[in-house]
Every structure is written in C-alpha cells, then in structure tokens.
C-alpha cells in the first residue's frame, strides 16, 4: 500500500501540472495577446486561438497520413522502396485472404443486424407505456469498453472439458438441450460469428436510441391522420414511420459499417486474431508490433482508409443534408 501511494502521488501530480500548467500558459498568452491593438487584433487572435489546434492536427493527422502513404511503399524498416509489393501481399497472400474475407463478413453481417434490431426495438418501444428502464438496460453496453464486453462474453462462451461442470452459459444451455458443448472460440468459422455477437450486443443500443429519437420526431398529426385513414400496424410502419426515419436509418447503418471495418478490440481480446478470426485492423497491429514490419502495417492502414472513405463521405453528406433540413 505504501508502495502504491508513493507511485500514485507523483502520477496525480503530473495530471495537476499538465492541466494547470496548460491553463496557466494560456492565461499568460491571452493576457499578452489581448494587449494587441489596431490592425493586429484579428490576426493575433486567429493565431492564438487556432494555432494549438492547427499544430495538433498537422503533427497528429495531416503529416502522418502522408508519411503512412510513403511507408506503405517501403520495406519493413522503411529503409528501401519496395513498390507495390506490400499491397500485392495483402491481396495475394493466402493468410491475408482469410483476413480480407473476415473483414468483409464483419461489414456484411454486423451492421444489418445492429441496425435492424435497433429499429425493431425502437418501433416496439414507441408503443410501450414505460420504456425508460428497458431503454437504459439495452443501451448500457455502449458505456462498457470492448475489452470489458469481451471478458463478459468470454465467460458466456467458457468451455470446460467433458468431465467438468460447464460454467459458461452457452455450454450449459447447449448441454441442457441435449447438445455437445465444444471449445467455441476454436471452432471456425463459428468463432467469427461469436465475436460478431459481442459487437452487435454493444452497438444495438446505440442504433436503438438514435432511431428512437428519429421516430419520436415524426410529426404526431401525420401519424394520427393516417391512423384515422385506417393505417395501422405494419402498414403504418411501412408507409409512414419508415420513410420518415429512412435517412437516420442509413446514417446509423453507415456508422456501423465503419465500426465493423475498424473492429480491433474484440478480436484482440477474445482470440488475438488466431483460430481464423483475424481482421484488417488487428493484422495491422500485429504487423507493426509483433512482426515489426512497418511497410505492411502502413499498407494495411491505407487499405482501411480507402475502405472507410466512401462510407464516411456518404455519411457526412447525409448528416449535413439532415441538419440543413431541420
């Protein structure tokens, strides 16, 4: 305990120094810059206000993005040019084929499940009297990290050998209904789908909350009028509710596609990418920090970037359209 206090103290001191040091420097800069007058006022204000953000963006995103493009055409320690061979490796290597197929599976399966399940829940909740408790409980996984979620689900998927009691929920349920439990996480391709369940479990609440907000925003008089005209149940949903929330539905779907594309934590924590569950973002991490191959890691980052661009551009356009409509 004493040992703990002696390390924790200085660490908190660092927080204090970082935060208050930063604010103190700002206060001094503001004071000096505030004394500028005449034609210097605006440029000085711009430099002081925008400078720090510009510095962070240039050093943290803009320059590194270009550097990564260069690295992707270089070898493992960036010392010599190798042309497109890193990209060739991504698209021709037999192990990489598994990685690409898995990533495509993730973006093909997961977003549809989260978004449709979220929509179903949002629509049904709208007809309930007391929706706040189930809403909170369904949304709760959003606050849990993927690492925490992975531990929760590893326990569900736990497998003990035949001679021991099954303490994992999945194994116990399978055994109760007369099946044979197995070491779930080693069983491909089933294991990839078991990992996807974790993602769906975390993200469905997000889809539900956002779609629910969109459904609540559908003008009540429109719904009322069409209900009087005899539309209810599925017809009401099909012709009134869904068209009204379609743009939100697409935004949520696109968000899920990007999330599924970049999935890293779940795979890292559950299987480390072994047993045929590897995906792009995890392979990128392995290339950089396990194989120490910067070139391949950079090329994987670029592929990820190229895959994300169309979805995000589409999503941003949609968000902007939606905002301007309001």
């Amino acid at each position: 305990m004493n040992n703990f206090l002696s390390t924790a103290g200085p660490k908190f001191a660092q927080v204090f120094i970082a935060v208050f040091g930063f604010l103190a420097i700002l206060a001094v800069v503001f004071w000096i810059a505030g004394r500028a007058n005449g034609r210097k006022v605006k440029p000085v204000a711009n430099i002081v206000f925008l400078g720090p953000a510009a510095l962070l963006l240039i050093l943290g995103l803009i320059v590194p993005a270009f550097q990564t493009i260069f690295f992707s055409f270089k070898g493992e320690d960036s010392s010599k040019w190798v042309g497109f061979s890193n990209y060739k490796w991504i698209f021709t290597d037999p192990d990489m084929r598994r990685v690409l197929v898995n990533t495509l599976l993730w973006i093909g399966v997961v977003p549809i499940f989260t978004t449709l399940l979220g929509l179903l829940l949002a629509v049904f909740m709208d007809r309930m009297k007391r929706e706040s408790l189930p809403k909170s409980l369904l949304f709760m996984p959003m606050a849990i990290s993927f690492v925490g979620a992975s531990i929760i689900w590893r326990f569900v998927y736990n497998y003990s050998n035949r001679y021991q009691p099954q303490v994992g929920l999945l194994s116990a349920v399978v055994k109760t209904v007369g099946g044979h439990p197995q070491n779930w996480l080693l069983d491909k391709p089933l294991n990839t789908f078991l990992l996807m369940i974790i993602f769906v479990w975390v993200q469905t609440g997000f889809a539900m909350v956002i779609l629910s907000a969109a459904i609540k925003a559908v003008p009540a008089d429109i719904v009322e009028a069409s209900a009087l005209d005899g539309a209810h149940g599925f017809r009401l949903f099909r012709f009134i509710t869904f068209p009204a929330v379609r743009s939100t539905f697409i935004v949520v779907l696109a968000t899920q596609v990007v999330g599924a594309l970049k999935i890293f934590d779940v795979v890292r924590t559950m299987t480390g990418g072994n047993f045929g569950t590897n995906v792009l973002a995890n392979e990128m991490y392995s290339q950089i920090f396990v194989q120490f191959n910067q070139g391949k890691g950079a090329a994987l980052a670029i592929v990820l970037f190229l895959l994300v661009i169309p979805v995000l551009l589409f999503n941003m356009r949609n968000l902007r359209l939606e905002r301007s409509e309001r």
């Binding site: 953000a53 943290g60 590194p64 993005a65 550097q67 890691g297 980052a301 661009i309």
Partner: peptide, 23 residues
C-alpha cells in the same frame, strides 16, 4: 479551414500510429 478540419474526420487514427510513434 473549417471544412478541411471537418473532412479530416475520414482519416482513421490507424494512419497516424507509426509516424507518431516515430516522432
């Protein structure tokens, strides 16, 4: 400048890891 910063959201942080670590 604002639009450019808005557009920077498409750069996944994975793109920055190696260069930042080197820096």
């Amino acid at each position: 400048v604002f639009f450019f910063i808005f557009a920077l959201q498409i750069v996944p942080l994975q793109m920055s890891l190696i260069p930042l670590l080197q820096l």
